[in-house]
């Protein structure tokens, strides 16, 4: 029996390439001389937690087959952020939405992003059953977007997921969350917001045939005004500084000298 429309899942995966392009964690970060930001003249790529989110959506389709009707990736950012969408499409998403912002505009904040996502979700004709997104972006480490979106939509949220099992028939999902004391399993009704943790999966490489296919997949372009939202930041960055430089160690010739040094540093009692 073919599943009825009511059982089909529409999945939305917001991804971020920040600063507006997420700085890759393999690249060393340097603070700008004005201490208001970091040197962006480095390589960028998709936020790794978002990569995990895309991977999870694609795995859901592999498991649930036709029951996943659509996987849409969405990003907010300047023209170049479209590359990130192509990556998501090459990994297996069906289509993409690019909310394009001017090259010169400051990066949107979590609340702005959450409002934009809400507006996008409300525009989807078939609705959205599941939003999977990274638990945080590794550039600003805000870790707020998923939760704010759940609040705005009044949907259930399952954060820090390390396992996700969706039952489209019952319209519910079981999520294993990583919490301080270990693992916690929660059951949620769809529609649902899930934020991904590191151990949820290991994202795949994009294969050449899929990269080719991705080029033909549609990317819908929108502007913030199309969504009726304002992405102007409400926070002001006062100062960014590098962590203090690690002091080099020294060698001591004897135990006595070591103890003397430790006392001098106030690490051991006199």
């Amino acid at each position: 029996m073919r599943p009825t429309a009511a059982r089909l899942l529409n999945i939305l995966v917001p991804v971020k390439r920040r600063v507006r392009l997420t700085i890759d964690y393999a690249v060393k970060i340097r603070v700008n001389p004005d201490q208001k930001g970091v040197d962006l003249n480095v390589k960028h790529s998709m936020n790794p937690f978002d990569e995990i989110a895309v991977e999870e959506a694609v795995r859901l389709r592999e498991k649930l087959k036709d029951e996943v009707k659509s996987i849409k990736v969405v990003t907010i950012g300047p023209a170049k952020a479209a590359e990130t969408l192509r990556t998501g499409l090459a990994m297996g998403a069906d289509s993409a939405i690019h909310v394009e912002t001017p090259e010169s505009s400051p990066p949107p904040e979590p609340l702005g992003v959450a409002k934009a996502l809400r507006a996008l979700i409300e525009r989807q004709k078939d609705g959205v059953d599941l939003v999977i997104l990274g638990k945080q972006a590794i550039d600003d480490d805000a870790g707020q977007t998923g939760q704010m979106l759940a609040g705005l939509l009044d949907w259930p949220q399952a954060t820090f997921a390390s396992k996700l099992v969706v039952d489209p028939t019952k319209k519910e999902a079981n999520i294993t969350q990583e919490i301080d004391g270990g693992l916690q399993e929660v059951k949620c009704k769809l529609p649902l917001i899930v934020t991904t943790d590191l151990r949820l999966n290991e994202p795949r490489y994009a294969s050449l045939p899929n990269i080719m296919k991705a080029k033909k997949k549609p990317i819908e372009k929108l502007s913030p005004s199309d969504l009726g939202i304002d992405l102007t930041p409400r926070l002001e960055t006062i100062k960014i500084t590098e962590p203090p430089k690690r002091q080099g160690g020294g060698k001591v010739e004897s135990v006595d000298e070591l103890i003397a040094k430790l006392k001098e540093a106030g690490v051991v009692g006199r």
């Binding site: 890759d24 790529s45 790794p48 990569e51 490489y205 994009a206 294969s207």
Partner: peptide
């Protein structure tokens, strides 16, 4: 000439390959 291939999408994948 080839069956298929994978293209690194990020510096992390670049290193992994």
């Amino acid at each position: 000439l080839i069956n298929t291939g994978v293209l690194s999408q990020s510096p992390a994948q670049f290193s992994q390959l």
